[in-house]
Structures are given as C-alpha cells and as structure tokens.
Design a protein around this nucleic acid. Structure first.
Lengths: 239, 239
DNA sequence: CTAGAACCCGCCGCTACGAGAGGTGCAAGC
DNA sequence: GCTTGCACCTCTCGTAGCGGCGGGTTCTAG
C-alpha cells in the first residue's frame, strides 16, 4: 500500500481515518486497519472499490451479501478468463501460420489479420479457419483469379435472370456448367460454401460488402442466384 | 464501431480521415477503411492503441514487427489468464467454505477474508490453506485460547532467557513441557508450524506483527526461542 | 421550405490511483 | 536557537479508451 492509496480511499469515503492529529495528520485506529485488510483482500480479488464500499458499508458482517458478491465476481472473472483463452488461441493460430510458412507473404498475412475481426463476428471458429485455409490454399493471385472468374459468371447470369432467359438456353447452360466447375475447383481447397451462405444470411445486407472483399466468393449474390441455378441444373440434358 | 470511436482515433492520429468535405465532414477512403479493419483486428486482440499505432505506422507490412508484437501480446495475455485462474480458484475456495458450513460464523469468515491478502504474499497456496484450516479447526474462541496460552509461555520463557536461567531449572523444564503439549494440541488440527516459521523468516520483521494477529502462533518469537528450547529439551531427564 | 437526422468541435466524466508542486509538523544534531 | 531532513498535508493534472452532453452547422427527404 502506498500513502497515496490511503489518501485516495479516504477521499472517496471507502476508508476514513477515524482520527486526526491537531496538525491534521491521519490517525488510523485498530478498527480502521481491520477494515483496510478487508478492503485489500477484496481488491486482490479484482473487485471495484465501489463494490467493496457497498458490501462493507451495508452491514459489517453481512455474509449473504458477501456471498452474492463473491458469486458475481466469480462469474465475471470466469467470463474474462474465457475471453482470454479465445484470444490466446487466436494469437497462437496466427503465430503458427507465420512460422509454418517459410516465406510468409506480408500482404496475405495482413489480409488474414483484417479478416479476423470481421469473420469472428459471424462465423464459428471452425468456419473462420476453413475460410482462412481456403485463401491460403489459393494464394493471393489465386484468390483474385477466382474472384474475377466468379464476377464474370455472376454478372452474365444476373443479366439472363433479368432478361428472363429460359433456363434451357445453351448460353445459360454453359454458364451454369462453368459455375459448377469453378465451385469444384474451389472446393478442392476446402468446402465452405454452405457455411458462407449461412453466414451471409446472418450478416444481413449491411456487411455483405465486407464479406465479399474478404472472400473469393460471391456471397452477396448467393441469395438471388441459387434458385435460378437450380432450375437450370434441373433442365440440363441428362448424361 | 461508434462515430465517437472514429473521432477518437482521428484525434490521437491513429486513423485520420484522408479527406474532408468542404463542410469539414470526415471522408474515409478505401485505404482508410483497410487500415481501420487492421486496427479493429488488433484491438480485438486486446492491444493498446499505442502499440497498434506503432506497428501500423512503422512499415505498412512489417511482418517481423508484427510477429514480435503478437508474441509479446501472447505472453501478456497468458500472464493475465494465469492470474485470473488463481483468483477464480481463491473465490471458489471461499464459496465452498461458506456453503459447506451449515451455520457460517460471520466473524470467522471475515477474518479469513482479511487474512487472504496478507497470507497470499508470503505463503504458498498449500501453506495458506493449512493455516486457514487450522483456524477453522480451533474455532474463534479456540484461537484466542491458544493465543493466550502461548503468550504466557512465550513471556515467561523470554524472561528466563533474559535472566540466563540454566536450562535444567525445573521451572524452565515445566514451561518447555507445557510448550510441547500445546504444540501437540495444535498439531492435532493440522501441522503447519515449520511452514509458519519459514514464512515468518520470509516476511521479515515488518509484517510479523500482522502475522501474529492472524495466526494462533507466536511466529514473531520463533527466531529467538527455539535454540533455547532445544537446549532445554536436551537437558531433560531421560524417561 | 422545413423537419429531422447526421455531422462538427470541445469539454467533462469514468477507474484507481501516480506524480508533482508548494507548504507544514516534528525530531535530531550543531 | 537554528538548520537539516523526513514525513505528512492539500490541490491539481495525467493516465486509456472512449461515452455523453451542449451548442452549432449541414445534409436529405418530404
């Protein structure tokens, strides 16, 4: 304990020095010291001074109140500990990725870093890792390539959807064939697409744009296109 | 993110809005948003804004610096997690004690509480628990009784030591016999005395007074008396 | 043209003290 | 009696990361 701390407790009324010398020096009685020991014990359990004041102020020996406070504090600390474990796991994963790659790509790593906070809001840890592994499997230019291939398909398919082109049309059938090829290509790196669709649904329209920037995946369009694609696949000539 | 947060980051220079409209409204470019995502990712890992500023300011893609920062943060969080686990264990122990006793004695519990912060500074968890169990075994009045019995013995023995009474003296021998009896009585509740002696040595003279208030044990005197006691026991008539 | 939303700046507030300025009290040595 | 030095006093500012308010401007939809 520092003198400053004692003065602070005095100031906020948590622990007043019961007596003062004529020269206004603080004089702590034996009871004051007893109270101080309790304060310190509770503070060592990470309780706030306000909480301590509450439980020590109510009744000097209110065991029920103390029990409630301890239980609440236990919950609080447990929640904090859980959070810390999550963070430790995340940082561990990041470091592992950095160390496992012989020549870590700065840009890719930074992108992974950027994605974390976004993905963690809407994906479970497994889903997030699947997405990260997918990006790493494709590599930086691979991601861009997939993105652009998909952008072309999406744009053309949306055009046909707007024009109400019948699903049996050869152009549509070709596009759908290329779509399924691309999807197969990507899935070879890790199957995550239903998860992305589910997450996109959870995210709503607000953040789908962010998702699109992070993912090699037309997540934004995955609400409107699939029905059309399904009809096209159903109309596909057998064989 | 709240608007207030963005203004704060702008204010401290962590994330400036690159452009302003003529009416001085902040305009964030795509690069600003990229930077913001990194800031958020690092903040989600519990890093300080100062650290983030450092690592994002140095070189935009300084992987080595990032690695160091992540490793340091991992250490920091691990230390925090360890501390939290200790606290959770302590609170759990306190609650267990409260719940196991059908009729918890408020005064005794508060005293236990008071002791925690003092004992935790100088005792290992096992030693601390041994002391607490000892107190609970004796009960409140038992502690006081032991204290006073010991105080008498200590005072008289110290007197003889001052007067250089020969260790063979019948009065000294009687005192030593009563000392050993008392010690046996207490040890029936839990053997902790060597531990207390060791802890008292670690505590130094500054806090031995606090220790004496908490313990049914003349810890303070355990440095000077034992040699005299040993000599007395050695001079004890056989049988 | 106007109402309401959204933005601006600047300031105070929160936790639990640390640190420092500027002044007083008190015992010991000369 | 006087100084030296230490411990104490009060008051104030600073910390990290914003939240929230007051008072003023700007944007946008009806």
């Amino acid at each position: 304990m520092t003198v400053r701390t004692l003065r602070h407790y005095d100031h906020i009324g948590l622990l007043r020095a019961s007596e003062r010398t004529p020269s206004s020096h603080r004089r702590y009685t034996a009871d004051d010291v007893r109270r101080l020991r309790r304060v310190r014990a509770l503070r060592d359990l990470d309780m706030s001074l306000e909480e301590i004041k509450g439980v020590l102020g109510a009744s000097p020996e209110d065991v029920a109140g103390m029990r409630r406070l301890l239980a609440a504090q236990l919950d609080e600390l447990t929640a904090q500990a859980d959070r810390l474990q999550r963070l430790i796991g995340q940082i561990g994963g990041l470091l592992q990725r950095l160390d496992s790659q012989s020549t870590p790509d700065p840009d890719q790593f930074m992108t992974t870093l950027e994605m974390i906070s976004v993905l963690d809001r809407y994906f479970t840890p497994e889903e997030r890792d699947a997405v990260v592994r997918l990006r790493e499997g494709l590599g930086p230019q691979g991601v861009e390539e997939v993105k652009s291939r998909w952008a072309v398909l999406v744009e053309q398919l949306l055009g046909h959807l707007r024009d109400d082109t019948p699903v049996g049309d050869p152009q549509v059938q070709d596009l759908v064939r290329r779509w399924d090829e691309l999807r197969a290509d990507v899935q070879r790196q890790g199957a995550v697409d239903e998860k992305v669709v589910a997450a996109a649904r959870r995210m709503g329209d607000d953040h789908s744009e962010e998702l699109n920037r992070s993912l090699p995946w037309p997540a934004e369009k995955l609400r409107t296109l699939p029905p059309y694609l399904e009809r096209a696949r159903a109309a596909r000539p057998a064989g």
